[in-house]
Design a protein around this nucleic acid. Sequence first.
DNA 1: AGATCGATTCCCT
DNA 2: GGGAATCGATCTG
Length: 211
Amino acid sequence: MDFETLVRWLLRDPVAVAPDLLGAVLTHTTPEGTVGVRLTEVEAYRGHRDSDHPDPGSHSYNGRTPRNEVMWGPPGHLYVYFTYGMHFCANVVCGPAGSSSGCLLRAGEIVEGIDLARSRRSAARRDADLARGPARLAQALSIGRDDNGATLDGASFRLEPPAHRAAGVLSGPRVGVAGEGGSADYLWRFWLPGEPSVSTYRAAKPRPARG
DNA sequence: AGATCGATTCCCT
DNA sequence: GGGAATCGATCTG
């Protein structure tokens, strides 16, 4: 899919984009080689212009800051943030420019460059653990500070949406989101059933994402 | 200027 | 199941 088409595909509410991202393949090419991950778990973070009231769980909830700047930009870019003093996590920016929406990439299955991914993730005991969890996924793909704002145009990062919308998508509360944003009103974590790469933490009973 | 705590992971029990 | 590691963005005074 060319970049222009991808941008159009991302130009929607993140709660609609997130389940559609399941099965998509994100690849990152570096001088070391290429690693590709098939997404199995994502979370939606809704910005200010995409809905009547903003998402209390989002980094952009309190407005524009240097850290969340990229989220306010156009879709088709990576929003990468640093957390717990040691981890990076990656989002796909979606929705129109000015909306500050994104989808956090929580887990996936390595489908390309597995040896390189293993070398970056020596702590992983099983291949299913290589990109199980957002910081692990970022490490397997070597996503770091410098990749904040990177374009998904295929130069270094490429995002290929799935040929068909995934069936049987499950949803539940988002992980690590405290307060209102973590309540049953925000079942914006989406994952594929039966995937060993989906992170273990389950905050509540999963339910079908679409009726 | 100082305190707080996080969209986490790993290792130990 | 629990605690440590580790640092910078954001908030408070």
